[in-house]
Design a protein around this nucleic acid. Structure first.
Lengths: 354, 354
DNA sequence: GCATTTTTGAGGAACGTACCTCAAAATGCG
DNA sequence: CGCATTTTGAGGTACGTTCCTCAAAAATGC
C-alpha cells in the first residue's frame, strides 16, 4: 500500500493537521517540525495522490484557446485538434473553450483577452501576430495571474509563460538540407511565404538560408515571394517566375496554400517535376505527397500540440514544473513513405468530414 | 458547475443507486429505466469525473515492463525512459516495475511471465523474441485477464492486446527513400542487420527493398550482413566488403552497433564519405550525426513510447477505448539540422549521467 | 389475486486529500 | 515566573464517485 498523509503523521510523530500545513506550505509551523515531516515523507517515499488532491480542492481548469478566424485548412485543423483534446480532457476536470478573433484587428483581440479573466479562466492559449496592443493585453492577463501560452508562432516579447510549437528556424534548416540533398547541390529554388511580417515565416527563411549558404553552395535560393494568403497572387507569381527562370528546380513553400501551388504547377505542366517542400500536413498536402506532387512536408503533430497546450496550462495554473521532454514539439519530416495512416497530427478531423 | 451523479438522479427521476447501476453496467435495471438515465445523462452533458471514480475504486495500476538483459545502448535507454515515465505516473496511482530476462533463454522468460499474475500486476509490457514458448506464456497471461502489450518489436501471433512501436516496414521504406534520393539513384548499398530472426529487422529490410525496386532502379541494395550484436564481426565484415566492392556509396544499418560501424569507417578512411543511415537516436548516433559521420537516423521517441505503454495498459486494464491518434508512435527522421536539443526521445538519461 | 421474482430506493461507508475551527500545548520574552 | 504569542492537535466536513446492505415497491407468472 502506498503511504498516505496519515502514515506521514504517524511516522513523524505529529498530527495530520501539521502534515497538511507542511504539504501545502501553510504558515505557522516551526522549521524543526517542517524538517521532521519532510524526513518522514522521504523515509516513506510518499507521493501525493493528485487525483484525490484535485478532488478535494474541487479544482477545475477552464481554458481558453484564442485563434484568428482565418479559413485556412491549418487553422481549422488546429481548432479541431484543440476541441478533440478538450473533449478527452473533460474527464479530468478540464474544459476548453475556443474563441476566434478577426485576423486583421488587434484591438478586437485585445478586448477579447481583457474579457477573459472575469469569466474564471485558468489559462489562455493564443495564436496571434505580435503587435504592441497584444503585448499589453498579454501582460495584463499575466498580471492577473492567468498563465498564457503562445501557440504555433512564438510571442517572446509578451513574456508568455511558454511556447507550444516547433523551432521554426530549425524547421527551415531541415527544409534546407532536404532541398539541398534532393537537388544534389545544384539549381535554383523558389521560396514562397505568406507574409514576411509573421515571425514563423522569417525564422524559417533564416534557417533555410543558413543551411544553403553553409552546405549547398551550388543551390541558389531566390528571394521570398509573398503571397499574403491570396491564391490568385500565388498562382500568378509562381507561373511567371517559373516561366522566366528556367533554372528553378525546387520550391520551398514556407506558408500555406498548397492547393493553389499544386494546381498552378499542374496547369503549366510542371507537376511532379520539381522538388517541392512544404509545411503542415493537411488533407490536401497528404494527397499531394501520395501522388508525388509534393516531395516532402515538414510538419508538427497537431494532436500533440493540443494536448501539450492543455498540460502546460494546467501545470502553469498550479505553478507545477513541466516535463520538458514531453512538451517539446518535434519537427516531423513526412515523405510518401512514412505518411501516417490517419488521424491525430493532422487535418482530417471533424471539420473535414462535415 | 458540472453535473454530478446526483443531478442525473434528479433529472431522471430515479435514485442515486439506480444511476450508479446504469453507469457501472451492474445488472438488475429495466431497459426502460436504463434509457431514462441515459437520456438524462445526454441532456445534462454529464461526463464522469475519472479522478473521483479512481479514488473511490482505490484503483491502482501495477505494471511490469519486461526487457532482455542486453547491454545495448538502446535497451538501456528504453529502460530509462520507462523508469522515468513510471516516476511521472506515480502521482496517478500507477507503479511500474522493470524486469529483465536472459536474452537467450525463452524458458526463463516464460517462467518470469508465469510468476507475474500472482503479484497483482494490472498489465505487462514486453519486448522479446517471438518464440513458441513465449506465445504460450503470453496467452496464459491474457487468459488470466492481464493485458499484454508488445514493445518495439511486435508479437502478432501471441494475440497481444496492442503493439507499442513504429511500423518497421514503413521505417525501412523511409530509409529507402532517403538513401535513394541522397545517392541520386546510383550506386551500391551495404545493408547491415543484427539478426534476420528478429521480426523488426526483417520488416525493415522488406520496406527498404520495396522502395528501392520501385523508385530507385539505379541503386543496388546488397544482401543483408548479419552481425549478431558482435562488434568484431561487424568491423571485419564491413571492412572486407568495402574493400571488395568499390561501388558501395551508402550503408543502411538496420540494427544497433553504430559505434563499431563509425569506428571501422574511420579506420579505413571512409568516415563521412558514404551516405550512412541508421536506426535509433542514441548518445553516440547523435554525436555521429553532428559530426557528419551519419547522414540520417530513423528513430522513435522513447519518451512517447514509454508514456504510451502506460496509457495503453491502463486503458486495457479498465477495458476502456484508446485514443488511437495519441498512441501512434511516429517514425522520426533526424538529420543534423533537426536534432532535438536534448532529452526525452533519447538515450541521454539518468543511466548515462551516472 | 396471490406468491414470487425483479427492480428500485434510501442510506451509509470508503477512497486520499484539502481546508476549516477551536482548544490545548509549547515556546519566547521581560 | 507569568504573560502573550506561536505552534500543534483533534476533529470535522467536503469533493464525486463506488459499492454495499436492506427494505420497499413494482412487475411477473400462474
Amino acid at each position: 500500500m502506498r503511504p498516505t498523509v496519515n502514515d506521514i503523521a504517524r511516522e513523524a510523530g505529529v498530527s495530520l493537521a501539521t502534515v497538511d500545513r507542511v504539504l501545502n506550505a501553510r504558515p505557522g509551523v516551526r522549521e524543526k517540525t517542517v524538517q521532521a515531516v519532510n524526513d518522514a515523507i522521504a523515509r516513506l517515499g510518499y507521493v501525493r495522490d493528485l487525483t484525490a488532491a484535485n478532488l478535494a480542492r474541487s479544482r477545475t481548469y477552464r481554458i481558453a484557446a484564442v485563434l484568428p478566424d482565418t479559413e485556412s485548412q491549418f487553422i481549422q485543423s488546429l481548432a479541431a485538434a484543440l476541441q478533440e483534446a478538450g473533449q478527452a480532457a473533460a474527464t479530468s476536470r478540464t474544459e476548453l473553450r475556443l474563441h476566434r478573433f478577426p485576423a486583421e484587428d488587434p484591438h478586437a483581440l485585445a478586448a477579447l483577452l481583457a474579457d477573459l479573466p472575469g469569466k474564471g479562466y485558468a489559462g489562455v492559449a493564443l495564436m496571434a501576430p505580435e503587435t504592441p496592443v497584444l503585448r499589453d493585453a498579454v501582460r495584463s492577463l499575466r498580471a492577473k495571474g492567468v498563465p498564457v501560452v503562445a501557440l504555433v508562432s512564438d510571442l517572446p516579447t509578451t513574456g508568455r509563460d511558454h511556447f507550444v510549437g516547433i523551432d521554426n528556424r530549425a524547421a527551415g534548416r531541415t527544409a534546407g538540407v532536404l532541398m539541398g540533398r534532393f537537388l544534389g547541390n545544384a539549381g535554383q529554388v523558389l521560396v514562397l511565404g505568406s507574409s514576411l511580417l509573421a515571425r514563423d515565416m522569417v525564422e524559417r527563411r533564416r534557417g533555410f538560408d543558413e543551411v544553403m549558404l553553409r552546405d549547398f553552395p551550388g543551390v541558389e535560393a531566390l528571394p521570398s515571394l509573398e503571397t499574403h494568403g491570396s491564391s490568385r497572387l500565388l498562382r500568378q507569381a509562381v507561373a511567371e517566375r517559373l516561366a522566366n527562370t528556367p533554372g528553378i528546380r525546387g520550391i520551398y513553400a514556407m506558408g500555406d496554400g498548397h492547393r493553389a501551388l499544386t494546381q498552378v504547377l499542374d496547369e503549366i505542366g510542371q507537376s511532379g517535376k520539381l522538388i517541392l517542400i512544404c509545411h503542415e500536413l493537411t488533407l490536401h498536402s497528404r494527397q499531394a505527397l501520395q501522388s508525388g506532387e509534393i516531395t516532402a512536408v515538414i510538419t508538427q503533430n497537431l494532436g500533440h500540440l493540443a494536448r501539450s497546450t492543455l498540460r502546460v496550462l494546467r501545470a502553469k495554473a498550479d505553478s507545477q514544473p513541466l516535463d520538458e521532454g514531453q512538451e517539446q514539439i518535434r519537427i516531423e519530416i513526412v515523405l510518401r513513405e512514412n505518411l501516417p495512416l490517419t488521424a491525430d497530427s493532422e487535418t482530417t478531423t471533424a471539420s473535414d468530414a462535415a
